[in-house]
């Protein structure tokens, strides 16, 4: 593996890390795999596109990118909160089995994807940043400017999340809730509010990753499918474990870049599947090593 591939792999991994973290946050608290996250990513990527189109006559390149990311992140937060209200709040009140959360999230994801298809058509769009040709050169190695921003913004976002989770009151509440909902509710944690805040945070990550995916692969309604990369990454890292998810995502990004170099992009999914299967058999608890017990 050359150093150039290493760089590409890490910047791809950093985008996967954003997806995986948005995914793991919800798993952490509600213990189900939230497939609606893909829909949130798609919807907010388009909202970010609208913001970018609206502002492109006033500002350009880097500031425009940053403002787009912020707009998409905020929009993602709000979309995720709406998703929580419509798809999961009542299920929680009814104490429905986990299967229902799962189906609800798939349905919500499909709903968002199809709404985007209807309102934006299934054409391909690309962001008006014009970063494509910009590259940074460090020694012999080149960074695409977009890769560089992805890496920097991902690191900032992840650091901010860690700070919130470990240094603030709301972070303590989220961690307490992920440990045991009933006990922490008895201790005076407002579960509804904390879960809403978690969804907001997950949506923020969904928004950022949506914009980056849009930059990487252009915008199309099925963009949300890439949620599966986040899913794989968070399984490799250990479901619900946030640092594990980041590690898993970087590993996945590196593996993918390596495989694309070796066998071509067409057969990469086959090898990823086999690797994942072997990994699940050998170490089902993931890198982080804490197994989440199925409710007995």
């Amino acid at each position: 593996m050359s150093v150039q591939q290493l760089i590409n792999g890490i910047s791809l991994g950093s985008v996967y890390a954003l997806i995986a973290v948005g995914f793991a946050l919800i798993f952490n608290v509600l213990k189900f795999s939230n497939f609606s996250h893909g829909g949130v990513m798609t919807a907010t990527a388009y909202i970010g596109y609208l913001a970018a189109i609206g502002l492109k006559n006033h500002i350009t390149s880097t500031p425009l990118l940053i403002i787009t990311v912020i707009a998409a992140a905020l929009a993602g937060g709000f979309v995720a909160v709406i998703v929580e209200r419509t798809a999961f709040r009542r299920l929680r009140v009814n104490k429905s089995p986990v299967i229902y959360y799962f189906v609800s999230s798939i349905t919500m994801g499909m709903l968002l994807e199809n709404l985007v298809t209807i309102f934006a058509s299934s054409n391909f769009y690309s962001y008006p940043f014009a970063l494509g040709s910009q590259i940074y050169q460090i020694g012999d190695f080149t960074f695409a400017a977009s890769d560089f921003y992805m890496l920097v913004i991902s690191i900032i976002a992840l650091t901010a999340l860690m700070w919130v989770l470990y240094k603030t009151r709301i972070g303590v509440a989220v961690r307490a809730l992920s440990f045991d909902v009933n006990t922490s509710t008895l201790m005076g944690v407002d579960a509804n509010f904390v879960i809403m805040a978690t969804f907001f945070a997950s949506g923020v990550f969904g928004g950022i990753s949506g914009v980056f995916l849009g930059i990487n692969y252009t915008l199309y309604p099925q963009l949300g499918k890439l949620i599966v990369k986040g899913f794989i990454a968070s399984v490799i890292g250990g479901l619900g474990n946030i640092t594990g998810a980041v590690a898993g995502a970087v590993l996945l990004g590196l593996t993918e870049v390596l495989l694309i170099g070796l066998v071509g992009s067409g057969l990469t999914p086959v090898f990823i599947f086999v690797i994942m299967l072997v990994f699940l058999l050998v170490r089902p608890q993931g890198i982080a090593g804490r197994i989440v017990q199925e409710k007995a």
């Binding site: 795999s33 479901l239 994942m276 089902p284």
Partner: peptide, 8 residues
């Protein structure tokens, strides 16, 4: 785990 089955 059931989640893993859906993933696989």
């Amino acid at each position: 785990r059931r989640d893993y089955i859906s993933l696989v």
